[in-house]
Nucleic acid binder design. Structure first.
Lengths: 183, 183
DNA sequence: GGGAGCATGTAACGGGTTACATGATTGG
DNA sequence: CCAATCATGTAACCCGTTACATGCTCCC
């Protein structure tokens, strides 16, 4: 009776891809990659193109997704994937199970702050300011995506995740500003 | 004249280990691992034990560190590493160069928030609350380490990095609380 | 006509993890 | 005496990236 026992052992990225398909749309590897860049990338990861395809193969081997080939035009086709009932059951079980994975943060800028006695502090400040500029942009992008998602009822939870990302980026900007006062 | 050209091409974790040795203490692989857990782990990563040893080998092959064997007791020895002048030069060049690596965040809880329509929201909330408890603990630990580091002048920058981590964890806790109101 | 975007896939590589293996020392 | 900690290392494995390879379609 324990759902956990039936959870197939997949890497996290598989769950991310299966999660995308759990929104019940028929999507190609290409679609999945682009969508991941606009949502998952903010709090999880943007998988490489080649990985999306290999994860789809893996999921299909496990019977969690099914595919068909669509003949877009005479000499062109694309493979479209849908989640199966097994896939939906796996997602449910995965959601119910304890979270065993750790939150991973790898912050190359903080590594340099930590080791700042090896270099010039003004150089480091310039690096941080450039980082800050990128964050401002990402923050605006996250807000845009969040607003977009909020307009679609089925995307309630993606919208919450994107608002979280917006907040996380705002917090990160504040902390960069704080860092600049400390250096 | 461009320092960047002379930077050996090493994975980030190598720089983390070399960075530890840049504080001019003679340390064993075991020491390095433990210290990483207490500082680097908060904003970068806790490398596995086996990796520390292999990174040290790599660094020694590049001439960035040097080692000697200390005979602790008759039948027991440990290998102690120090940074070389070349290693110090490499660290300086690395600090001056543009930061090309991306900040990596992999948040398994947010992935589940994003895909929350697949499961029970109450389950998810419970997972988040457990996560919150862990964060409270980590927050206290970070503060302790930061206070400890602040007492040592040579650890000025590690102390700043740890204070940053303390703030990052406080922000993360606030965002979890916000998430719980939204679900 | 040409460049941007659509679209899919393979192969090589490597960073990093887990598991295995071993054994001494220290403190309760 | 026994468990925890100190201490080092190897081997297998795999996730994920980069680079390579190919070719169509749409729009300016």
């Amino acid at each position: 009776m324990q759902a956990e026992d039936q959870i197939p052992d997949l890497p996290m990225t598989s769950w991310a891809v299966l999660g995308e398909l759990s929104f019940d749309e028929e999507l190609s590897g290409y679609d999945l990659k682009r969508w991941a860049e606009q949502s998952l990338a903010f709090f999880y990861w943007a998988p490489s193109q080649s990985q999306v395809y290999s994860e789809l193969k893996r999921l299909e081997q496990h019977g969690l997704v099914a595919s068909r080939v669509e003949q877009t035009h005479e000499a062109k086709s694309r493979r479209l994937y849908v989640i199966t009932d097994e896939g939906r059951a796996a997602m449910r079980a995965w959601m119910a199970a304890e979270v065993t994975e750790q939150v991973v943060l790898k912050h190359p800028y903080l590594l340099r702050v930590w080791a700042a006695h090896n270099g010039n502090v003004e150089d480091l400040k310039r690096h941080l300011e450039r980082h800050r500029e990128g964050l401002i942009e990402r923050h605006a992008t996250a807000r845009g995506h969040a607003e977009h998602a909020e307009a679609v009822p089925a995307w309630k939870y993606p919208a919450i995740a994107l608002r979280w990302s917006e907040r996380a980026l705002a917090d990160e900007i504040d902390r960069i500003d704080w860092l600049l006062t400390q250096l």
